[in-house]
Amino acid sequence: MERDADWQEQRRQAIAGHAAALEAGRAAEAREAAALIDEFVRKAGDHGLTPHMLMARTFDGRATYRTHVRGWYLKSNRSVAVGEDGEYYVLTVPASLRARFTGAELTPSMPRLIVGAGGGDGETIPLRQLLDQRLEAGVSWP
């Protein structure tokens, strides 16, 4: 009985240690991604890229809502953006009658160095590449 309790305690500690390591790695990744985003916002201003009012789509893709955030779309499908506030936004929101009239509320997301990682759709791209492409496209891209 005591042996089972010891094993269970060791297992709990191992799981807690693994979770802490994952969280620390994720936090380090987010700091690195945030630095890339800060650099992009600075360069966007230097390149004369004007931020736009961002739009968000519902999870099912049937409706689009205004938001109160200004920024730059990073992907041509307008699913992710960087706000002029230096935050990273995933532009999907729940359907809402209220949002249809007042606009959707966006909450910043924790940025990742690989956009789309863990999303399951197989469409991943390095954040740095997206940011560089957006700067290269310049003002001709929304």
Rank of each mutant, 00 (worst) to 15 (best):
E2K: 00
D4C: 10
D6S: 03
W7D: 10
Q10H: 13
Q13P: 00
Q13A: 09
A16P: 07
G17H: 03
H18A: 10
A19V: 13
A20P: 06
A28Q: 14
A28G: 10
A28Y: 07
E29M: 06
E29W: 03
E32R: 15
A34W: 01
A35T: 12
D38I: 00
D38P: 01
F40G: 13
F40C: 13
K43C: 07
A44P: 06
G45Q: 03
G45E: 00
P51I: 04
H52K: 00
H52E: 08
M53R: 15
L54Y: 06
L54K: 13
M55Q: 10
R57T: 09
T58C: 11
F59R: 12
D60E: 12
G61D: 14
R62L: 04
Y65H: 15
H68G: 13
V69C: 04
R70E: 12
R70Y: 11
R70L: 10
G71C: 10
Y73D: 04
Y73N: 12
K75A: 05
S76A: 14
S79I: 06
V82L: 06
V82Q: 05
E84G: 01
E84I: 00
D85S: 09
D85W: 07
D85E: 11
G86P: 14
Y88S: 14
Y89P: 01
V90Q: 10
L91T: 00
T92S: 12
V93M: 14
P94V: 11
P94A: 11
A95M: 02
S96W: 02
R98W: 12
R98P: 04
A99N: 10
F101Q: 12
T102N: 11
G103I: 04
A104R: 02
L106P: 03
T107D: 03
P108V: 00
S109I: 05
S109E: 12
L113R: 09
I114L: 03
V115H: 05
G116P: 01
A117N: 14
A117M: 11
G119T: 12
G119L: 07
D121K: 15
D121S: 15
T124V: 12
I125S: 07
I125E: 05
I125G: 05
Q129S: 07
Q129T: 08
L130Y: 03
L131T: 02
L131F: 02
L131P: 01
R134M: 09
L135S: 01
E136K: 09
A137V: 04
A137H: 11
G138P: 01
G138N: 03
V139K: 08
S140D: 14
